[in-house]
Every structure is written in C-alpha cells, then in structure tokens.
C-alpha cells in the first residue's frame, strides 16, 4: 500500500475544504484526482504531503504521516513555483530535487547524470544552462516535472503538471512516467492525454469524494458538472453519447483495475446520468 487516507478533513481559514475522505492507493497504481475548480483537489494532495494540517489518518508506505521520514521516496510536482532570482538556471532548479533533509551541500558529482536524465525525459536538455525564468510557462512546468522525478521517487504526486504543455510533449512525458513504475497521483482537469495509463480516478465535489473508480478518458468535467447540477435540480438528462472507448474496436482506455464505485451518502447516485460514458 502506497497511500492510505482515512476520514481526512481539512479546513483552511476556518472553512472546511476537504470533508471526510477515505481511499487507498496500491503500489504501482496511477490515480487521477478530478473535480471542478474549488472542489478540494489541491488541498487534498497537499494534506497527503503534510503541507496542510488535517484531521483523520494519512499513511504513506505504511507509516503514519507525522512519523514519515523517507521523503527521498516521494516526488512532488506543484502547479507552479516561485523562483525570483532571474539568473537561476534550469539545471539548478532540477538539482534542488536531489537535496535531502539528511545531507548538506550540493549534489555529488556522481549524481549529476540524474539531472541530465530528467531533463532529457522532459525534452529540455538544450535548455539546462538557460535561466529558468527565460523559459515559457509550459517549459517551466516541464522543469518542475524534471525536478519532481530526478531522484526516481517511489511515489510521485503531481498537481496539474501539464498546464500550458503541448499535447505532443504530454504524451511523451506520460509514457516515460508510466515506465518508471512509480505510484502516481495526479490532479487533472483533462484526462484524455492519460488514455491507457490511469488505473483509477477519484472525483471530488465540494470537498467530498463522490467517485472512486475508472473513468473513460474522454470524460469531461463540464459534462459531469452539468449532469450533477441537472440531477440536483431534479431535471432528467438524456444519457450522453457513448465514449469511443466503449466501442469494440476502440483503443484501450483506462486499465480498470481499481475499485469501481461512487461513494458518499447523499451523492451515491451523483454520476448515474453519466454511466454510458464510464469504462466498466
């Protein structure tokens, strides 16, 4: 078991953002966290990493979060980073991913090849010596991905890692990440680039986990929202067009290895209008 979350609650500024969420992620699984803006996705993964205090229990690799010390096994890719010094190079940003709480000084020379390897994976080998702030937003995001994976983490947690990144590069990076064999938890707005890679999706709505199971890669959160709102308003909605991946000759979609159920007491039927699009 890589990650186990039990009855997690997170409040920020007195407001409950994440409410009574429980799930487990097995070693090697790739899990997407979906939900509309403000649904609590980022707060959830930050709480898993201990960046927000939370109620309930979080275990990472079998160890309670407050006792967890094996941070070298964790990789984190945030939505963005604040690098104010405009001369800081791409290579230096990636190098900071090799630091450890248990060692001092810069990275040993024998580990330098890891930086080159990570930059090659995200297609930025030629930009290694360029100032990070001179890159475009999409390139900066790829640098943060390189920083998050440079130490070959066992668990990789990413928060919307592909904002502004070209679809071609997304596919290349996802393929490379999936070969790493790490447990991956990724916050996404759009799952289509992850076709064939995702084992499960967790869907959050207003801080609650409303679905834990496979999701068709072409599933749109907008359509999910409209279905949800229609249901809340008591309006029946015609089933959407089946996803191409449900047809016999389609390309493989989600791997469908995880649990497949909606959760919660009031939202059990939340996604019933979307059933034809789920890959079951």
């Amino acid at each position: 078991m890589s990650i186990a979350v039990n009855s997690m609650g997170v409040s920020l500024g007195g407001l409950p953002i994440v409410k009574d969420i429980s799930f487990q992620i097995d070693t090697g699984q790739t899990v997407a966290v979906l939900g509309s803006n403000g649904s609590g996705k980022t707060t959830l993964i930050k709480a898993i990493l201990g960046l927000h205090s939370s109620s309930g229990q979080v275990e990472i690799m079998g160890t309670a979060l407050h006792k967890f010390r094996a941070w070298k096994k964790i990789g984190y890719v945030p939505q963005r980073a604040t690098v104010s010094l405009h001369s800081t190079t791409v290579s230096e940003v990636v190098e900071s991913g090799l630091l450890s709480g248990r060692s001092l000084g810069w990275v040993r020379s024998r580990d330098r090849h890891l930086i080159a390897e990570a930059l090659e994976l995200v297609g930025l080998t030629d930009q290694a010596r360029e100032p990070y702030l001179h890159l475009s937003g999409g390139q900066q995001q790829r640098v943060l991905i390189a920083r998050g994976i440079v130490h070959h983490p066992d668990i990789l947690i990413m928060d919307e890692p592909f904002a502004g990144v070209d679809l071609d590069f997304q596919a290349e990076i996802i393929t490379a990440l999936s070969r790493m064999g790490s447990t991956i938890v990724v916050v996404l707005h759009e799952t289509s680039a992850w076709t064939g890679v995702l084992d499960r999706t967790l869907i959050l709505r207003e801080g609650r986990l409303v679905h834990d199971g496979p999701l068709a890669p072409s599933q749109s959160l907008d359509s999910m929202d409209s279905a949800t709102n229609a249901q809340k308003d008591g309006v029946s909605e015609a089933p959407p067009t089946p996803s191409p991946c449900t047809t016999p000759n389609s390309s493989p979609c989600a791997k469908s290895q995880g649990p497949d159920h909606t959760v919660g007491t009031t939202d059990d039927s939340l996604l019933s209008g979307m059933e034809p699009r789920w890959n079951t």
């Binding site: 990493l49 984190y76 900071s96 630091l99 450890s100 709480g101 248990r102 920083r147």
Partner: peptide, 16 residues
C-alpha cells in the same frame, strides 16, 4: 536556495 525558491517543495524533500 530550495526553501527560498519553493517552500512546499522543500518540505517534500524532508527539509526542516
């Protein structure tokens, strides 16, 4: 450098 650039990321490195 790490904590000045990105505190959250520095935390995930196990830095105090």
């Amino acid at each position: 450098f790490a904590i000045s650039a990105d505190e959250d990321f520095a935390h995930t490195l196990g830095l105090p």
